[in-house]
C-alpha cells in the first residue's frame, strides 16, 4: 500500500525553503515545506496576497532556485532536469498577458508541441493529433481558426490550458487561472481542471484566491500561512480550522458549515 502511494507521487518537496537571496541578505518567504502531489489530482494553492504563492510556484518550476532543500519530480531532483526535459514534464499557464495576441488558436496551442518538434518546429502528424485532442478535450474546436485578440478572457484562458495540455506533461501548473474571470467562468475553469485531472491522470496544481470554489473541487489543498505550509484534503483542512488563521479576523471569518467566508457583521 505504501509503495503504491509512493509510486503515485509525481512532485515532492523535501525541507524546501523558498525566498530570494542576494549578496547582501537572504529573504526567506517560507521554509520547511514538505509536500507530495499525486497523479490525477487537482491541487489548489491558497494564501493571502504576498504570502509567497508565486515564489513557491516559481521555485517548483525552476524559474528561481530554492534557498535550501529539494524539489523532486518523478523521483528525480529538479536540478538534474535540462530545460527541454523539464518542458516535457511540466507545463505552465501564467497570469502574465501574452506578448502577442496575433496567434490563431491553433497556432498558439501548437506551440505547446515545441519540446517535441524538430529544429525549425515542423509539426508531425502526431503533433497535429495532440493539438486537436487538446482542443477537443477542452471543447474549443470551434475556436480553432479564431485570432487570440478576438477571444474573451474566459475563452483565452481555455486556450492557454489547451496549450499546456498539448505539451503532454505529467504536471500542469497554473498561476491564478481565475483572475479576470466572472463568477461563472471561475467555476467553469476550475471544474474543467478537475475533469482534466481525472480524465488524463495528470497532476494539476493551481494558485487561487477562490477558496470556496477550491474547497468544493480540489482533491487536496496547499494552504500557506505565515507560520506553516500545510497540505491536506479540504475536509480535513476545514476541521483543523486553518482557514480561520488565513486572514486577520477583524473583517471576515470562515463559516465551517457553508465552507465559505462571511463578513463579520458585528463590526
Amino acid at each position: 500500500m505504501l509503495t503504491q502511494e509512493a509510486h503515485n507521487v509525481v512532485l515532492k518537496t523535501k525541507n524546501l525553503s523558498i525566498g530570494y537571496s542576494s549578496k547582501k541578505e537572504e529573504i526567506v518567504v517560507a521554509s520547511n515545506i514538505n509536500i507530495a502531489l499525486k497523479k490525477g489530482e487537482l491541487i489548489g494553492l491558497i494564501g493571502t496576497n504576498g504570502i509567497g504563492k508565486s515564489t513557491f510556484l516559481r521555485t517548483l518550476t525552476k524559474v528561481q532556485p530554492p534557498i535550501s532543500g529539494h524539489v523532486f519530480i518523478n523521483n528525480k531532483s529538479l536540478n538534474t532536469y535540462s530545460g527541454l526535459n523539464l518542458a516535457k514534464t511540466l507545463s505552465l499557464v501564467l497570469t502574465e498577458p501574452l506578448a502577442s495576441k496575433n496567434f490563431t488558436v491553433f497556432e498558439l496551442v501548437a506551440l505547446g508541441r515545441q519540446p517535441y518538434t524538430n529544429w525549425i518546429g515542423n509539426l508531425t502528424a502526431t503533433d497535429i493529433n495532440a493539438v486537436n485532442n487538446a482542443l477537443t478535450e477542452i471543447n474549443i474546436e470551434h475556436l480553432k481558426h479564431k485570432k487570440c485578440f478576438e477571444l474573451s478572457d474566459g475563452q483565452l484562458q481555455k486556450v492557454l490550458i489547451a496549450r499546456a495540455l498539448a505539451q503532454d506533461t505529467d504536471i500542469i501548473i497554473l498561476d491564478e487561472p481565475t483572475t479576470h474571470l466572472d463568477m461563472y467562468h471561475k467555476a467553469r475553469t476550475l471544474k474543467l481542471l478537475k475533469e482534466l485531472a481525472k480524465n488524463t491522470n495528470k497532476t494539476i496544481l493551481f494558485s487561487s484566491h477562490e477558496i470556496d470554489l477550491a474547497i468544493q473541487l480540489c482533491d487536496e489543498m496547499i494552504v500557506m500561512t505565515k507560520n506553516d505550509v500545510v497540505i491536506n484534503t479540504p475536509c480535513n483542512l476545514i476541521s483543523s480550522g486553518i482557514f480561520n488563521a488565513l486572514f486577520p479576523e477583524d473583517l471576515i471569518a470562515f463559516d465551517e458549515t457553508s465552507g465559505s467566508f462571511k463578513i463579520n457583521k458585528n463590526i
Binding site: A87, E96, I120
Partner: peptide, 22 residues
Amino acid sequence: ITTIKSLNSLLLGENYAKSLGV
C-alpha cells in the same frame, strides 16, 4: 533561420518560452 523556432515561442513571452525548453 536557426532561431525561427525560439522566435515563435518568444512571442508568448519569455517565461512561456522558457517553460517550452527554450
